[in-house]
Write a protein that binds this DNA or RNA. Structure first.
Length: 841
RNA sequence: GCGGACGUGGCGGAACGGCAGACGCGGCGGUCUUAAAAACCGCUGGGGAGACCCGUGCGGGUUCGAGUCCCGCCGUCCGUACCA
């Protein structure tokens, strides 16, 4: 690729003078310890709010302090560190903070098993992990560290809760909620997987009726939905958020019942109401007991009980088309447009949690309703006829029809086209007072109460005289007592802590009982990045000025598993903080990148319990943190992840040793005078092309190919060590550039080599090299010559070769003439500077 | 079922519609060594003595030219799951 003579002799005898043991030249442990100490003594990574440089906020999801780091943590943190370092060398004032998501069930569950208090184990784990992050060489300003289980932090959870209470964004309500019998707590809807699996522990969960605290995230639902459009996030994450919000346009219709009750339903197909031949209620629907006629009561009760049990046990069996089940209540409703009597059934395919928990069933045009109607022999009335093909017949059709067509059997709206005419039908229904347009959402309010110990106490008291009374701001924090008995009982452990439980009412001074539930730990992570901007504030969660100086976060990196929950809650909190005047922007994270997962041996997730985690420490001890960082980058595309494999790390070590040799050559040669001149053009081209490649790859998060570019650079230079170029200014430029390009990826060794080159401390304060455009192209290019699309020759031609000259050269090629024979080319394709394709017959 | 991503040597993976397999690991051969390790040099998709031929899951298509674009399959992974 570079037209420099390379010695092909391959003899090593005439190389350099005999070298000392390579270990003496590059001992990773010694180099890394040396610079780690120096950087910490100098506070090299301290972030200055007053810096005049433009800001760059690089955030990586803070870890749960589970004990020790595994290579997955390195993957998640060391790689974004590379980008943060690049931005710093580019002249940004970079904030790259770190903290710990320190409340939560694992510590508490471990405490129940081992008897070690969660506070103790959490802080021990944090100390150990902090030390491991130091080993990694990450650019962390530890003075900004946030630990969410400290009163200094969770006090502001409480403060924010009180503000939300004032705004009606926090409220208490009775409802049917998911309960995990293993963790002995309620869960948010978002924490229930596959219908009934606890996200935390995998146990089967079920519904209980409890009075709980909620955050009214639904108040922001439209904004949350619309604002996703403008985010530079992976498309699939945005799609997952939109699907979770689940907006659907439709109408709310009221059906009168023969009992005198009214039954509201939500439908996305109000145009099909003339085809509604029965209704279905969820088994848990509150009207079920009162509308069931006495002779049907036994059957309905039995069905409801069975449905509830099935929800408890397993509803995963929904993969195959589960046969529809249900029972008739004995009661009829009146179809509001046809005035017909239609039966009301109870069936578990209608969910209480969506819409109104009741539906009008239109079997001709809905698959589920169709299956139900056929199973129970209910009438199927076609109200949409397709405009082509055979007309549908409700008696004989075998699947529901949801295609386009015209409304039939629909009285005043007969002939309306579907779907284009639906708005007209809805307008007619509204005009008749028989329904109204409504937008439905899947998203529901966020249940934040947890009956567990290791979390933020909810700052309210219950007073017999005053009711629910918020704790005044000046009495915050409500401190979590450390001497509670935290064995789970189904109630918060704080219930049995007398000193905590009994207090006085802040309003009337009388006796009062504290709220003993704690907050979902997702509250902690919903605003932590703001706290990094002002970690010691005693008066507010954070200063609005400081927050707006740094946020929105420019680049947020983390696991794809947080695509819905954490990111949605964080966006919600940001909008609340904006409305509280704490920040200006309504979105927290401008750009999001998700790393793939590093899988353990059998291609499975690394798990502590199964012992499949790979520890970084022995690898660091043996190969160095720099080699491990490079190895992780080199495994494959970062956003894709992959299986862990420690074999390749030796290749990274070899690369680093070759770089050391190149630098030591130059260091030994001493200072070179003069500027790079035309004698070193080939080396200079190589250097600048490498700058361009490395920079582009870093910006595109292509860390694997970035490392490949560095390796190729070193290999190329190593191949030329024996030539006379070593002492030239161009060579010196190449070596210095190499060290600069290595600085983000291999921060320890780059610092060491920079010093050996006699350059001023620190390499991490140097500007990132810029590629000279003029050096990115060669004088000559290799022109590919094809015949009928197959490569037949390669010619070296001037870069600005004319088309005519290129064609002529191509046709003159010996190899081309052999292939073409005597045939006359029918066509010649020319791609400037790249290729000639000669087409014959 | 629905939605998305992916399928390339022994392995991890590269390739603006234009030289398939960059780079690394592993393997083979060599230099140095009493020896080994390390380091260094060379080779390493398959077939063929060779010119060449065949090769990016399978089958079609578009194009001068397809790993790349289009259509239809097969397989793997991820998300989601009766959302009215």
């Amino acid at each position: 690729m570079v037209d420099v003579e390379t010695p092909q002799s391959g003899r090593s005898g005439d190389r350099q003078p005999p070298e000392r043991d390579d270990r003496a030249r590059y001992d990773p442990m010694a180099v890394e310890a040396k610079w780690r100490q120096r950087w910490e003594a100098d506070r090299l990574y301290a972030v200055d709010d007053a810096s005049p440089l433009p800001k760059w906020y690089s955030l990586t999801m803070y870890p749960y302090p589970s004990g020790v780091l595994h290579v997955g943590h390195w993957y998640a943190f060391a790689v974004p560190d590379v980008y943060a370092r690049l931005q710093r060398m580019r002249g940004y004032n970079v904030l790259f903070p770190m903290g710990f998501d320190a409340f939560g069930l694992p510590a508490e569950n471990a405490a129940i098993r081992s008897g070690v208090h969660p506070a103790r184990s959490t802080f021990d784990n944090i100390a150990q992990m902090r030390e491991q992050y130091r080993q990694m060489g990450a650019m962390i300003d530890w003075s900004r560290e946030v630990v969410t289980c400290t009163p200094e932090y969770y006090r502001w959870n409480q403060w924010l809760f009180l503000r939300m209470l004032e705004l009606g964004l926090a409220y208490r309500a009775n409802g049917s909620v998911w309960w995990c019998p293993n963790d002995q707590t309620v869960l948010a809807n978002e924490q229930v997987l596959e219908g009934n699996i606890c996200e935390r522990c995998g146990a089967d969960v079920y519904k209980r009726d409890l009075e709980q605290w909620y955050f009214r995230i639904t108040r922001y639902v439209e904004e949350l939905l619309h604002d996703t459009d403008g985010l530079d996030w992976p498309e699939r994450v945005k799609t997952m958020q939109r699907n979770w919000i689940g907006r659907s346009e439709g109408a709310r219709l009221t059906f009168k019942l023969e009992t005198g009750d009214a039954l509201e339903v939500f439908t996305t197909r109000p145009d099909t109401v003339w085809g509604a031949t029965f209704m279905v209620l969820a088994p848990e629907h509150p009207l079920v007991p009162s509308i069931t006629v006495p002779e049907r009561r036994e059957a309905v009760d039995a069905y409801a009980a069975q449905a509830r049990r099935e929800t408890e046990i397993d509803r995963q069996s929904t993969d195959e088309a589960r046969p529809k089940t249900g029972v008739f209540t004995g009661t009829y409703a009146i179809n509001p447009v046809t005035d017909e009597r239609i039966p009301i059934w109870v069936a578990d395919y209608v969910l209480l949690g969506y819409g109104t928990g009741a539906i009008m069933a239109v079997p001709a045009h809905d698959d589920r309703d169709f299956a139900f109607a056929r199973a129970f022999d209910l009438p199927v009335r076609v109200v949409i006829q397709p405009e082509t093909g055979d007309p549908l017949d409700g008696a004989t059709m075998t699947t529901a029809y949801h295609g386009p067509g015209r409304l039939v059997n629909s009285g005043p709206v007969d002939g309306t086209t579907v779907p284009d005419g639906i708005p007209a039908v809805v307008a007619w229904l509204e005009g008749q007072g028989r329904g109204r347009r409504e937008v439905g959402y899947r998203l529901r309010d966020w249940l934040i109460s947890r009956q567990r110990y290791w979390g933020t106490p909810i700052p309210v008291v219950y007073c017999d005289g005053c009711g629910v009374v918020p704790i005044p701001d000046d009495q915050l924090p409500v401190v979590l007592p450390l001497d509670a008995a935290f064995t789970p009982t189904g109630q918060s452990p704080l219930v049995s802590h007398e000193a905590f439980l009994h207090t006085t009412c802040p309003s009337c001074g009388g006796p009062a009982r504290r709220e003993t539930d704690t907050m979902d730990t997702f509250v902690d992570s919903s605003w932590y990045w703001f706290r990094y901007t002002d970690p010691n504030n005693q008066n507010l969660p954070f200063d609005p000025g400081k927050a707006d100086q740094w946020t929105p976060v420019d680049l947020y990196c983390g696991g794809i598993e947080h695509a819905i929950l954490h990111l949605l809650y964080a966006r919600f909190f940001t909008k609340v903080c904006r409305d509280l005047g704490l920040t200006e922007s309504g979105e927290p994270f401008r750009r999001l990148r998700s790393q793939g997962m590093i899988l353990g041996k059998e291609g499975t997730k690394m798990s502590k319990s199964r012992g499949t985690q790979v520890a970084p420490d022995p690898l660091v001890a043996r190969h160095g943190a720099d080699a491990l960082r490079l190895h992780l980058m080199y495994l494959g595309p970062w956003e894709q992840g992959g299986s862990w494999n420690s074999r390749g790390i030796t290749g990274m070590e070899r690369f680093l040793r070759r770089a050391v040799q190149l630098v030591d050559d130059v260091a030994a040669a001493g200072e070179v005078v003069g500027v790079p001149d035309s004698d070193g053009m080939a080396v200079r081209r190589l250097t600048h092309r490498t700058i361009a490649r490395v920079t582009k790859d870093l910006d595109e998060f292509q860390f694997n190919t970035m490392v490949a570019a560095l390796i190729e650079f070193v290999n190329e230079l190593t191949g030329q060590r024996g030539t006379g170029g070593v002492g030239t200014p161009a060579w010196r430029e190449a070596i210095e550039t190499l060290v600069l390009l290595m600085a983000p990826s291999a921060p320890f060794l780059a610092e060491e080599l920079w010093e050996r080159l006699g350059k001023p401390y620190s390499v991490h304060h140097q500007p990132w090299p810029t590629a000279d455009e003029a050096l990115l192209t060669d004088d000559t290019v290799a022109l590919v010559i094809q015949v009928n699309g197959k490569v037949r020759d390669r010619l070296t031609v001037p870069v600005d070769v004319s088309e005519a000259a290129a064609r002529e050269l191509a046709l003159a090629s010996e190899r081309v003439r052999e292939t073409v024979g005597g045939r006359e080319p029918t066509r010649v394709i020319y791609v400037p500077g790249r290729l000639v394709n000669i087409v014959v017959r």
